[in-house]
């Protein structure tokens, strides 16, 4: 830590950060431009593009669908992921290790391939309703986050507390809900947030699993951007980035942002 970085390296790093964050600043700027097209530097100042986001009914409708899919998909993944994470950290052996790797599969398979496969097998093959396949698809892509983050939080849990409760006569299920679960609460919240934002931002899986009347916000934005050039999407982007800030504060309070740089 004692050695400072060379000034040239620091300058380079500053340029990299300008490259990473500058475009987002530019989008935020164009959102306020009083022009019919995307302009930077913004000309004039208006909030009407923000109002317009709420005027476009497709954005309103798809926002609700995205929200429902993200909330219920994440809850389902936690419902499956928490027991699995408990088993993985409680019974450490070769078999559970293999299972831990198995649960990474949804991240390894390219999302676009997964989306297409679910369309082919479940939407068409089993004739399931669009919303169901969309929900199941999102549940699977966020499952690794649920399992991993909850496992990480269980790794710090002292199982002798659980043993103590059991040997004092509490049954295992009750012990799990009254002793284990409250102790890993922040891990579960962090898993929820990470899974939620992953689901909310997803494009490649939703791409194949949306249909007539049912679409998600990112897919709708994609369609809008390809057809219109006014700053409405820039205004929507600013709203989504503000939400990202909220998410980051929540992650910092539960998991710690250092989770991202291990």
């Amino acid at each position: 830590m004692a050695r400072r970085s060379h000034p040239a390296l620091v300058a380079f790093a500053v340029l990299v950060y300008i490259f990473l964050l500058g475009p987002l600043v530019i989008v935020a700027g164009t959102a306020f431009s009083d022009t019919q097209f995307l302009a930077f530097p913004p000309q004039g100042f208006t909030g009407r593009w923000f109002a317009n986001v709420f005027e476009v009914s497709a954005f309103r409708e798809t926002f609700w669908i995205s929200l429902q899919v993200a909330v219920f998909g994440t809850l389902l993944s936690l419902l499956l992921g928490i027991p699995a994470a408990y088993a993985l950290s409680r019974y450490r052996n070769q078999v559970t290790k293999a299972f831990a790797n198995f649960f990474v599969l949804p991240i390894l398979v390219p999302e676009i391939v997964f989306g297409f496969s679910v369309l082919n097998s479940m939407s068409v093959g089993l004739d399931l309703p669009i919303f169901t396949t969309l929900l199941l698809g999102h549940m699977i892509i966020v499952l690794p986050y649920s399992v991993r983050v909850v496992s990480a939080s269980l790794a710090n849990f002292d199982y002798s507390i659980e043993e103590a409760a059991v040997s004092l006569g509490s049954n295992r299920l009750k012990t799990f809900f009254t002793i284990v679960l409250p102790n890993i609460r922040s891990g579960i919240i962090a898993a929820f947030i990470l899974a939620f934002i992953t689901s909310l931002n997803n494009v490649p899986v939703s791409l194949f699993l949306t249909g007539p009347g049912i679409s998600t916000l990112p897919i709708q934005m994609l369609t809008y951007v390809e057809n219109f050039f006014d700053p409405t999407v820039a205004a929507l982007s600013v709203m989504l980035m503000s939400f990202t800030v909220v998410v980051m504060v929540a992650i910092e309070r539960t998991l710690g942002l250092s989770y991202f740089a291990r």
């Binding site: 964050l21 475009p23 989008v27 995307l38 934002i197 989504l240 990202t244 998410v247």
Partner: peptide, 19 residues
């Protein structure tokens, strides 16, 4: 500042390059 873009929608980030 490195995590922020990572959690921002890919549509937003690609859109920024259209701008």
């Amino acid at each position: 500042c490195a995590v922020f873009p990572l959690l921002t929608s890919t549509v937003v980030r690609s859109f920024s390059w259209i701008v």
